Simulated scan of single mutants.
Amino acid sequence: MTDVRRTPAFADLPTLPDRDERHAWDVWGRGDELGTVNLIGPEQRVAAARTVRTGEMVSLTLPLNEPDPGLFDERACYTHIVEDTPAGHDDRLDEFYLQGSSQWDGLRHIKAGRHGYWGGRSEEDLAATDVLGVDRWAEHGLGGRGVLVDVAGYLAARGTPLRADEPHEITTALLDEVAAAQGTTFRSGDVLVVRTGWTEWYRALPADHRARLRGTIGAGFACPGLESTKDMAAYLWDHEFAAVAMDNVGVEVFPVDRAKGFLHRRLIALQGMPLGELWHLARLAQACAERGSHEFLLVSGILPLPRGVGSPANAHAVL
């Protein structure tokens, strides 16, 4: 658990008026636009800096043109246009989807049905103002202590490796088991980083296999991820994680079990938690294993985009 509790326990959060779903809209006030990023302050950043030993910097993100092709039909790959100028060149990206590669889902991304977005905001609120744009996170800064829970590495070492194309549910018990085996403890304000090995598997597939996966989200696509239960939502809240990032397509397991609920809705709309997707964690996992520690300084350069729904992660671990 966390060292010093700074938020109410999940069990003490109120529920929505007509749904048995808990929300944190009053924890930092209804006007809040940061969500759990509030848990990262100067104290957490200073503590995170103390984890740096060698100064090695490891990128945690894919090239912008990966995954290739993307999994979502509606998210086409950008076109990179380089223009000649008298002094050299300018360039631009056309049809650039901010959530097409390694990215963060922002607080404008998902709503809790008719109850609205983070803080109970309506569609009209978002249309009329810049509220909840990813620029709010950019201004505050999203960086602090990262902790890698290498589920893929742990299960492979046990002789029971994850299959990247099967819906293996990562439970709260498994997260605790892997963390304990690594000697990893959690602190309030941590960014939880979970490795399933999915991006590594996808990149190694033949081009024709990758092409067949495009457009299959919601139509037979499967991959390991966090279980989408209320227990998982409670676990992430009660550990006071500032954010969760994974190397799979959507953090939670696919396909989504509607009987268990949609973790995106619980975490983004009701708990205000950033979700990172499609991160590339192979090099980080190797470096952490070699040095015998899975904590690091995590820095993420979120785009200062008013009204931004998501942002490329631009994330690095400093070891």
Rank of each mutant, 00 (worst) to 15 (best):
V253Q: 10
G144F: 01
E166G: 04
C223T: 08
R203E: 11
V147N: 02
A173G: 12
T172M: 02
D150I: 03
G215L: 06
A245I: 08
D165I: 04
T216E: 07
P255L: 07
G261T: 12
L213H: 09
E252N: 14
E200K: 15
L162R: 08
H209N: 10
F186A: 02
R203A: 15
L155Y: 06
A243D: 02
V147D: 05
P167G: 04
D238Q: 01
G215M: 06
D165L: 09
D247A: 00
R195K: 12
D176M: 05
G250P: 06
E227M: 14
P224L: 08
G218R: 03
L162Y: 04
E177Q: 09
Y202N: 13
T199S: 15
T229H: 10
G144T: 15
E227C: 14
V193Q: 01
G250T: 15
W237Q: 03
G183L: 05
E166I: 04
D257F: 08
A156D: 14
D190Q: 00
L263G: 12
V178Y: 00
A157M: 01
L142W: 11
A164P: 09
H264S: 14
W201R: 15
D247E: 05
T184G: 09
V193H: 00
A180Y: 05
E227R: 14
G261C: 10
E200D: 12
D231S: 11
E240N: 05
T199Y: 10
C223K: 01
G189S: 03
I170D: 08
H239W: 11
T171H: 04
W201A: 15
G250N: 13
D257K: 12
R210Y: 08
A152T: 03
M232P: 10
G143I: 02
R214L: 03
P224N: 12
A259W: 09
A245L: 07
V151N: 05
D247K: 01
R214Q: 13
T160M: 13
L148R: 01
A157T: 11
V253N: 06
R163M: 14
T196L: 00
A222T: 11
V256L: 15
F186C: 00
D257E: 11
I170M: 04
P255M: 09
R145D: 07
V191M: 02
I217S: 12
A219V: 09
V194G: 04
A156T: 14
E169P: 02
Y235A: 09
L148I: 04
N248R: 01
R210W: 03
G225N: 01
V151F: 04
A179M: 05
L213K: 06
A219W: 10
G197Y: 04
F221M: 10
H239M: 06
H209K: 11
G153F: 08
A211K: 01
A207P: 14
R258D: 15
W237E: 05
E166T: 11
G189M: 05
P206R: 10
L213T: 07
M246N: 10
M246F: 00
P206T: 15
D176C: 06
A242D: 07
N248S: 03
E200M: 14
T216Q: 12
T171C: 02
R163L: 14
G261S: 11
V149P: 09
